[in-house]
């Protein structure tokens, strides 16, 4: 049975070194919760994209990680938040290839495809929080809400 030990965490995101910690934490937590190799790889990649956005666009922030359960399904919820400039046009930001500068513009839209549930909340001048959930086994019925 998976336990929440080593899964619950709040990690700072303030440098590219922190991105390495985020990837390692997510990899280990997902493995602990019974994620298969491909699902682990997808979730770690999504986390890497979102954490880099927190760092580069949000000016730094944190990632909160927690185990979630729904019925018999076990999942991992990751929330990336910052107190940065926020995103004025969410739809545009999610569009493949859109970048406000410097990137490939694949991070936000790509991360959304790599996880089972995705929510983006942002207020201009206040900050941004992106929350994702992936399930260790087949995702339960409600895919878009949590």
């Amino acid at each position: 049975m998976p336990t929440s030990a080593g899964v619950e965490a709040c990690l700072p995101i303030g440098s590219d070194l922190d991105l390495v910690w985020v990837r390692q934490h997510v990899r280990q937590a997902a493995a602990r919760l019974g994620f298969g190799l491909v699902e682990q790889t997808k979730l770690v990649t999504a986390a890497s994209e979102l954490a880099r956005n927190t760092l580069v666009h949000g000016g730094g922030g944190r990632m909160d990680s927690a185990q979630v359960t729904r019925g018999r399904a076990v999942g991992l919820r990751l929330a990336f938040s910052d107190d940065g400039p926020g995103i004025a046009d969410l739809e545009l930001a999610l569009k493949d290839g859109y970048t406000s500068g410097g990137g490939l513009g694949m991070g936000l839209g790509g991360a959304r495809r790599l996880v089972h549930e995705f929510s983006l909340e942002s207020t201009v001048g206040v900050g941004t929080t992106v929350t994702v959930v992936s399930w260790a086994s087949a995702p339960p019925r409600l895919r878009e809400e949590f």
Partner: peptide
Amino acid sequence: MRPAVAITLVELGL
């Protein structure tokens, strides 16, 4: 490239 990485890159759109 590992197969899991290839699968992920395609889904990422890269």
